[in-house]
Design a protein around this nucleic acid. Structure first.
Length: 295
DNA sequence: AACGTCTTCAACCGCTATCCA
DNA sequence: CTGGATAGCGGTTGAAGACGT
């Protein structure tokens, strides 16, 4: 590939892994656990670079890997998370049980990215895409409107690393007016339950003073467990923030907050959705409604 | 059947973050 | 604080199979 190798690879195997190599690696990790990748090949008797072993294990051999057939729900979630996080595939993968960052990245590059692009300029989509959709019926599940919303609001999380967090305590209250439909869905799944019962008006209180881990923000579910579309349709929150002054990131500006990567990660890598943090859904509104460079 | 083009995805790369002595 | 080792990330590549002519 025209680049200098990251480490000495004389006598090392390259390219596709053989079943034998897979077995050696699997057996070794089962016996000794993950980690120490650099030394692993030598100890396991593999002619591979440690990095390659790690990748093979994480992306292919791990027992909890779910392969192929990305469902419509998963697809929608990927798009939504991509809109929120940008190309932070590992964070996105963290919310899709059994999926790897590599798989999601590939899926995005080969399917969703194109789809978003095509929907942006429908004229260029052409017959080719039509044909393709015929053979991949699940790909048609997302409406054009959805995709347009997704496309325009990717948060550029990698541009600048923040070490400070500013949160405006004067967050507008979330509307909590009675909603029959919501009430009906209250028992549908954990996410709806928590949303319904924890819509506080204080964006900070739940961050500061609760035993539950506020970092476990986003979603913890298996997509088979309940109807993901409830979450996806929720848009996380739809409070009417305006973002007229995109350069003013001070706490007193219209942006309620600028978030560090750490916070972002915490929000998206937790193992469990904690009830108290649902009120912090407020905090995401600027992301979702913010089309420009927010940093 | 043969050939060329396209698509997919596993594997590779360099870079950065984190850990630890 | 510094620097080496290690882990992890996202971008890119290319082999292989699918598809079209």
């Amino acid at each position: 590939m025209g680049r200098t190798p990251c480490c000495a690879k004389e006598g090392l195997n390259r390219g596709a892994w053989t079943a034998h190599e897979d077995k050696i690696l699997t057996d070794y990790i089962k016996a000794h656990g993950e980690g120490r990748w650099r030394n692993l090949p030598k100890r396991a008797g593999l002619k591979r670079c440690g990095k390659s072993c790690r990748l093979r294990w994480l992306n292919y051999l791990r027992p909890d890997i779910k392969r192929g057939n990305i469902s419509v729900d998963e697809e929608e979630l990927i798009i939504r998370l991509h809109k929120l996080l940008g190309n932070r595939w590992s964070l996105i993968a963290g919310r899709l049980p059994g999926r790897t960052d590599n798989e999601i990245k590939n899926y995005w590059n080969t399917n969703l990215g194109k789809k978003v692009q095509d929907l942006k300029s429908p004229a260029s989509a052409g017959k080719k895409e039509l044909k393709k959709n015929e053979t991949r019926p699940q790909s048609t599940a997302i409406s054009k409107g959805q995709l347009q919303r997704f496309e325009s609001k990717v948060v550029r999380t990698k541009a600048i690393r923040c070490s400070k967090v500013f949160i405006n305590p004067q967050l507008p209250p979330l509307k909590t007016e009675p909603n029959p439909e919501q009430n009906n869905r209250e028992t549908a799944g954990p996410f709806n339950r928590t949303l319904a019962s924890h819509t506080t008006t204080d964006g900070l209180s739940s961050l500061a003073g609760n035993d539950d881990n506020p970092s476990d923000f986003l979603l913890d579910f298996s997509v088979e467990e309940f109807c993901l579309s409830d979450l996806l349709n929720s848009d996380f929150c739809d409070v009417g923030y305006s973002n007229k002054n995109s350069n003013d990131l001070s706490p007193s500006s219209e942006h309620p907050g600028v978030f560090s990567d750490e916070m972002l990660q915490n929000w998206t890598t937790g193992d469990r959705l904690q009830p108290n943090v649902c009120s912090n859904l407020h905090s995401f509104c600027p992301f979702l409604d913010y089309g420009g460079d927010w940093l």
